[in-house]
Each structure stands twice: as C-alpha cells, then as structure tokens.
Amino acid sequence: MSQAFNLVDDARLASDLARQAGALLLKARDLTSITGKPLGALGDAVGQQFLSHSLQSLRPHDAVLSEEATDDVARLERSRVWIIDPLDGTREYSEGRDDWAIHVALCVDGEPVVGAVALPALNLVLDTSTPPQMPDAPDGLKILVSRSRPPEVASRAAEVLGGELVGMGSAGAKTMAVVRGEAHAYVHAGGQYEWDSAAPVAVALAAGFHVSRLDGAPMVYNQKDVYMPDLVVCRPELKDRLMAAVA
C-alpha cells in the first residue's frame, strides 16, 4: 500500500530537489574542463543520479518517469508518478547559456498537481508551493518558440496577432519566461515528451496561466505513450485570440 503524503509537503520536496539538483549541475560545470556534448552528458548524469536516488529514498512507494532512465511501465498502475527532467536544455547547459532548467513534477491520476522548475543560472526556482503572482504583461506581443525549431503554427499566430517570435532554449525556461512576464505566450509543435512539460505546466497552471494542447485539450500525464508533441502556455487574456490563431 502506498504511503499517504500531503501535497504541500510534496510541493516543498519538489522545490528543494530542483534547487539542489541545479546547484550540483552548476558546480559540475564549473569544476570540469570538458565542453560540448560530453559536458551535456555529464549534466544529465549528475541530475539523474541525484533526483532518482532522492525520490527513491524519500518517496519509495511512488513511481518515477525520467528522460534519463528506462521507462518502467509499472508506473501505469500507480496513482502518484513523479515526472522529472534532470536537465532540460542539455545543449544550452553545455554552451554556458542560462536558458536551461531542472524539472520535478508529481502527477496524481494524470494531473500535474505539484511542480518545481529550477533556473539555476538565474538562481531561481518557481514552484507550486508558493505559486508566482501573475505579473503585468510586457510591451509588444511576444511569443516564445524553440530557438532551433520554431514551429510554423507559431509563425502564423504571430502574423495574425501582430506579434514577434522570440527564440529561447529549454521548454522549462520558455514556460517560466511567460510566467515571469517576459513574454505573452509559448507555442510549441513538433515533438516533446511528458518530462519536457509536466513541471512547467504545473507551475503555470498554479499561477493562473492558460495551458493546453494546440487543439485546446488539457495536458494529461502518465500515459503509455509519453510523446506530447504540442503545447500552448499563455496569459489568460490572450487565450481566445491565440487559440483561434493556432487552430
């Protein structure tokens, strides 16, 4: 039988683990002389080892789904599943940029109820234990997209709405940039997985932002197929116009 935990405690744990993992990754990057893909692989390994061991010790009865571990399909029979990305934005991390993140989320019956996104290079953790207050909208409509693969649907939305596309690294960094008031929306199409969005989505929802698939469907996690190809995160006042533009 699974041990019962208070979701408030789970949220604090997610925040603490994300922060600690971020500190470890910063230290690993500072202490090594390797660069490029080997540095990214080191970051992935450091984050995975810390988070997986921590969750195994502190939440032994919960399932864990991670980008950096073999998928155990026994998770499909569990109500509580931690979904983690030990290093979201491996390329950005290896290039010394600041737009990478650590994701720690807890989904209960498919719903992302707890989440923490650490932005270690900015010394920030945004989480559901103390959801961020929605800031004022920035000047000029800005839509965040992948800096390497901006989707055509986002280009179309920017044209329809009179906005501009802004490229940025990890999915967590982009979602948190919307939550922090640096942009109005984040539009993604073309391929992600559950670990790319679970924690950022939990934080954005807790802060009052609109989150959905491109067709307006809610984000549902702990699925047999963990591929989640599209995502929209935006300020609530933009929802109707943006969703019409991406339809």
Rank of each mutant, 00 (worst) to 15 (best):
V232H: 00
E68D: 12
L17K: 09
V104A: 03
A154I: 04
S54M: 12
L122Q: 15
G190T: 12
E111Y: 11
H210T: 09
D109A: 13
M219C: 08
L124K: 15
A202D: 04
L141R: 07
M1P: 15
Y93D: 03
I102V: 15
A202R: 09
P229H: 11
E237F: 08
R241F: 03
E237W: 10
A247N: 14
V113F: 00
W195Q: 10
V64M: 12
G163R: 00
S33M: 10
D215K: 02
V113H: 02
R75H: 13
N222G: 10
D85G: 05
D9F: 11
L42C: 06
I83S: 03
A247I: 00
V166I: 15
E68T: 07
S54A: 15
G40W: 01
P131R: 01
Q223A: 14
G181M: 08
L161H: 01
L55M: 11
H210A: 09
D30Y: 09
T70S: 15
G110I: 07
H210R: 03
P151N: 01
T35C: 08
A21P: 00
L42H: 08
L122K: 14
V46P: 08
R29G: 12
V160K: 15
K174I: 02
P229V: 03
V64A: 02
D62F: 13
R213W: 00
V73G: 00
T175Y: 01
V201C: 13
R213K: 13
Q3A: 13
S52G: 12
L25P: 03
V220A: 07
V113N: 01
A247K: 14
R213G: 01
G172D: 06
A245D: 07
L13K: 11
N6E: 14
S148M: 10
V153L: 13
P112Q: 01
S129F: 12
M1F: 11
Y221G: 10
H188E: 11
G172F: 04
R156T: 14
L13E: 11
R147P: 02
R147C: 14
P132Y: 00
A177R: 10
H103W: 05
H103C: 07
V166R: 13
A4D: 14
L24Q: 10
S15A: 15
T35S: 13
L238S: 04
A177L: 08
V114D: 01
F50E: 06
L242F: 05
